[in-house]
């Protein structure tokens, strides 16, 4: 949840990158960390298992500096995609002010993506949040894959709400900042 500290003149918002395992969430944060202005980016923390898969989360604080006398910060989280960690995903979603759903464009991932969307909707409902009325954008990642599903198809099956969606290749950074800008603005607009 957003924290507005009138006394210390600070505003903090949490953004969660959600999606199936290996869809490219960590890669998004790594790219942002490498390419954001040095004054804006904090330490990238990754809590991984020994096999390097995200266990609890990746965490990247971003600092916009002073805006009209208020220090504005966005905290980016990723959640582990494995089915096993559903409860961890709920815990991280509890504090979310905005959600980016990262979708793997690979042809064999369509069903998994669909399940991840359904799970997100269910978890948000459990938390008393309505995804249809919440800062929420999508990212079609891995557009470079030779078997990438056409965007029109992804849109039809996975984006019935017609929320803002961005084509991306997280490994090269394409679409990464466009996604970030959209979710940050959406969060601020609803603050």
């Amino acid at each position: 949840m957003a924290l507005i500290n009138v006394a210390t003149r600070e505003i903090h918002c949490n953004i969660v990158y959600y999606g199936t395992g290996f869809c490219g969430k960590t890669t998004n944060l790594q790219y942002i960390h490498r390419h954001a202005r040095p004054e804006a980016r904090g330490k990238l923390l990754s809590i991984a298992t020994e096999s390097e898969r995200t266990l609890f989360f990746d965490f990247l604080p971003l600092d916009l500096g002073a805006v009209h006398g208020f220090r504005v910060r966005f905290h980016l989280y990723t959640v582990p995609g494995q089915v096993l960690y559903e409860r961890t995903r709920v815990a991280v979603l509890t504090g979310a002010d905005g959600v980016v759903l990262v979708m793997d464009s690979g042809a064999d991932k369509l069903e998994e993506n669909f399940q991840s969307l359904i799970e997100l909707e269910t978890n948000m409902r459990k938390l008393g949040k309505d995804l249809g009325n919440f800062p929420f954008v999508m990212q079609w990642n891995k557009r470079d894959l030779p078997d990438a599903v056409p965007v029109a198809t992804l849109d039809r099956y996975l984006n019935r709400r017609r929320v803002e969606a961005f084509d991306a290749v997280a490994t090269t950074g394409e679409g990464v900042f466009a996604t970030l800008r959209a979710i940050c603005k959406s969060v601020m607009a609803r603050l």
Binding site: V6, I11, A36, A40, L64, G65, V67, F177, R181, M188
Partner: peptide
């Protein structure tokens, strides 16, 4: 805190800082 000027400034700052 959150008035129109603030919202505009935040949007501009986001555009300025979050780009390749």
């Amino acid at each position: 805190v959150i008035n129109v000027q603030f919202r505009n400034s935040v949007e501009n700052t986001i555009d300025l800082l979050f780009q390749d």
